[in-house]
């Protein structure tokens, strides 16, 4: 029985127990749960970025080809000729860094979410199949994952970018290929544990087909760890996207992702620190928030999970 954890007072083992007709009201949702503050804070930060990405570019127009050489490399807080305030300063062609960052957040978050969906779909599918069927299916799929892990994603990105050229779609493909393995491994280990549980056998004895068992019984029980993994991976993906873009292998220069902005500001670090630094700080804050969120979610849903 799983309720016999060491240190648990024996009296709590039998939970709410009363006569058939006087069950206590539903309990369990009311108790305080771990990580609440961390979840709220990190979610707030993430929400700020999402709001900025969605609404920002509407309020503060950004034109990637426009230049305003008269106002290049102005420090944060400079008032621009059109009367607006360049809160984060301007870059080497006189573009507002804040507008550029908000546009960049759009790219970063779009790439992140798209990658997450694609990698998650591939990974979860592979994990469920490998875990459920075992045997040679498991062996083949997991060796594939091992091969994937030994292949540096940077190399893959260079390879794909050189064949297909840098584009946002290609970026999503590269990052999905690099990240599905995490999903596959976590899902597989969950499925391995859950498929032997009595309630799965019980559903099987009802006559359920494999499809029903996989999608209706086993998969819903794996969601918590998958969500945790997704949160952490999202942070990784956004960082990876910035790195690839920084190297010129990710989003094309016409798409101002954070990596591109940071790369552009690299040459001006001595006289215009803000061009690289402010997007860099923004990136760090977002990635750390996802990390904290993932940790907190793990503590809440799956304290024993050590696979990350």
């Amino acid at each position: 029985m799983d309720g016999s954890a060491a240190g648990m007072p024996q009296v709590t083992d039998d939970g709410p127990a009363a006569g058939p007709d006087d069950l206590p009201p539903p309990a369990g949702r009311t108790r305080g749960r771990p990580g609440g503050l961390r979840i709220v804070c990190s979610l707030l930060v993430v929400a700020c970025f999402v709001v900025a990405a969605v609404i920002g570019p509407i309020l503060l127009k950004y034109d990637p080809v426009a230049t305003n050489l008269g106002f290049r490399l102005k420090p944060p807080g400079t008032r621009l000729p059109d009367g607006s305030l360049a809160v984060f300063g301007t870059d080497q062609v006189g573009q507002d860094v804040l507008a550029q960052m908000m546009q960049g957040a759009r790219v970063s978050i779009t790439v992140g979410v798209a990658t997450l969906l694609l990698a998650g779909f591939i990974g979860v599918t592979v994990g469920v199949l490998a875990g459920y069927f075992g045997g040679w299916v498991d062996a083949v799929l997991m060796r594939l994952a091992d091969i994937q892990l030994t292949f540096p994603s940077i190399l893959l990105a260079i390879f794909i970018a050189s064949i297909l050229g840098p584009s946002v779609v290609n970026l999503v493909i590269v990052l999905s290929i690099a990240n599905w393995v995490t999903f596959a491994r976590v899902t597989r280990s969950q499925v391995l544990g859950i498929k032997r549980r009595d309630f799965v056998d019980a559903t099987r004895t009802l006559g359920a087909r494999t499809w029903h068992l996989m999608t209706r019984t086993i998969l819903p029980s794996c969601t918590a760890p998958i969500v945790v993994v997704a949160t952490v991976v999202l942070g990784h993906v956004i960082l990876a996207e910035a790195s690839l873009s920084f190297l010129g292998l990710g989003s094309p220069a016409s798409t101002p992702s954070w990596g591109v902005t940071i790369a552009n500001g690299r040459d001006y670090l001595s006289n215009a620190w803000w061009i690289s630094t402010i997007p860099g700080i923004g990136l760090a804050v977002l990635v750390i928030s996802f990390g904290v969120l993932g940790d907190a979610l793990r503590d809440r849903f799956d304290p024993r999970m050590t696979s990350l």
Partner: peptide, 20 residues
């Protein structure tokens, strides 16, 4: 014995075995 043992958080008044 009918019923279940009481929830220790909601003990019946008087004798604890009374409801059963």
């Amino acid at each position: 014995i009918t019923g279940s043992p009481p929830d220790l958080l909601r003990l019946p008044s008087g004798c604890r075995f009374r409801p059963r």
